[in-house]
Design a protein around this nucleic acid. Structure first.
Length: 277
DNA sequence: AACAGCTTCAACCGCTGTCTT
DNA sequence: GAAGACAGCGGTTGAAGCTGT
């Protein structure tokens, strides 16, 4: 893997951008689009490396950048997502339109982290896992997770664990989830009414959010375009990489949805253990 | 007014992932 | 499959501004 030569080794400018440089970059991108960052500075006549141009554009010059202080709502979102995702700033930024990963990272380190330090005794505790029962009826439960949901939407959301292609209802089980409280209630794999048996030896598992009122198929279409397009193999017991690929880098959801998915992310490790068929 | 310490944030660095050949 | 090129990410840095003494 070759690495791009450093700017200074090529006699290029470093440090703060001048207004003239900004204007050149803006004009060039407005006329020609982003294209190849590496080639851009040469074509635009900038003595900067492509990396520097990309950073300047994405973090500062982009027209959809929202400047100014973060709202309380934005800060709360960052805190929640950071609890769920860790330092995955780009994934967090994807849920906050107009905010950049760099900005969020800075806000986190300068404001939010400090604010949270006194609360650490009460949050972020390790999740205690409950082993699934032995035998064919693998009723599953998860004890009080670390993520604290502050929303009051009580509509249950289901995760369908199916043996079939998404959209078909055969041999599926679901993880019932309610975002109404601090998630102190246990979670279990259920069908519509009762705890059910996970299909024996499924060859493939699909995760589908049936949503609250959304049809399975419609919801799945959305998800399929983002993070859920990968089939989770039951052999490798690794849900996390699949979820990690998409992270929160999508934005078709409302805040409630984001809360839900991020909560789900915190559980993926649990789920991967729970799905040991 | 001058200085020191602290905070903020734009920018850089080095690494990884993805795509192309 | 290997290697190169590139984009993007997260950690870190350092200059500028702010605040307290």
């Amino acid at each position: 893997m070759g690495r791009a030569p450093c700017c200074e080794k090529m006699g290029l400018n470093k440090g703060p951008w001048t207004k003239e440089e900004d204007q050149i970059l803006i004009s060039y991108i407005n006329e020609n689009g982003r294209g190849n960052w590496r080639a851009l500075p040469k074509k635009a006549g900038l003595l900067r490396c492509g990396k520097s141009c990309r950073l300047r554009w994405t973090n500062y010059l982009r027209p959809d950048i929202k400047r100014g202080n973060f709202t309380q709502e934005e800060e709360d979102t960052i805190i929640k997502l950071h609890q769920a995702l860790g330092n995955r700033w780009s994934a967090i930024a994807a849920t906050l339109p107009g905010r950049t990963d760099n900005e969020i990272k800075n806000v986190w380190h300068s404001h939010l982290k400090k604010r949270l330090i006194p609360q650490q005794d009460h949050q972020g505790q390790a999740v205690r896992k409950t082993k699934p029962e032995q035998g064919t009826n693998k009723a599953l439960s998860v004890e009080k997770p670390k993520f604290h949901c502050q929303d009051s939407n009580s509509s249950p959301v289901k995760i369908i664990v199916s043996k079939q292609e998404p959209g078909t209802n055969n041999q599926s089980s679901s993880l019932q989830y309610s975002s109404s409280d601090d998630i102190s209630s246990s979670l279990s794999f259920t069908d519509a009414t009762t705890t059910t048996t996970i299909p024996d030896n499924p060859t493939e598992i699909y995760l589908t959010n049936s949503g609250d009122g959304d049809s399975v198929s419609n919801k799945h279409q959305e998800l399929d375009q983002d993070i859920w397009h990968d089939v989770v193999s039951s052999q490798d017991h690794s849900l996390s990489p699949v979820l990690h690929r998409g992270g929160c880098g999508f934005n078709p959801f409302t805040n409630d949805d984001i809360n839900f998915w991020c909560d789900l992310f915190t559980r993926t490790e649990d789920i991967s253990h729970l799905l040991e068929f």
